[in-house]
Amino acid sequence: MDLAKALKAIRRSIWVYHLNSGSCNACDIEVLDALTPYFDVERFGIKLVGSPRHADVVLFTGPVTRESLPKVVRALKAMPRPRLLLVLGSCGVGGGIWWDTYATIGGFSKLEEILREQGVEVDRVVYVPGCPVRPEAIIYGILVLLGLAEQKVREVEVHAPGG
């Protein structure tokens, strides 16, 4: 599949499906907030849809609780290719404050392994940290996903100056 072509095709009309895997709702109401007048993501042609089958991009929130895991996998399976994911919030990205508890699986990287086992391929993931993510951060994340904005963060490793 030509990812670049697919990205270009949805550039002005992005249908998003919001998938909550057990988040605290803060990111979720910020997703909603992004749709309301102050941020108005319909400027970019972004529209929330009610089914992953209709979705170009899935907005993924939450640390993936054990109870929600099978449902999450199934929802992602239902999504058409290319599967584009915007993982929102510290819970989704790194498991958040509950990254190691018995009731969660610990964020998206763990889910990715399970998806692979289940044969569900994901074509592109963009991680958006924040606790909660600001509506502007969500917009910026979508722009990065579509290649309309440059990624600003880079891996940094600095040696502390010796004495």
Partner: peptide
């Protein structure tokens, strides 16, 4: 199962 339905700009909680 997978939810089906119209567009709704509201919260999603499982």
């Amino acid at each position: 199962g997978v939810p089906l339905g119209p567009y709704h700009p509201a919260l999603h909680e499982p």
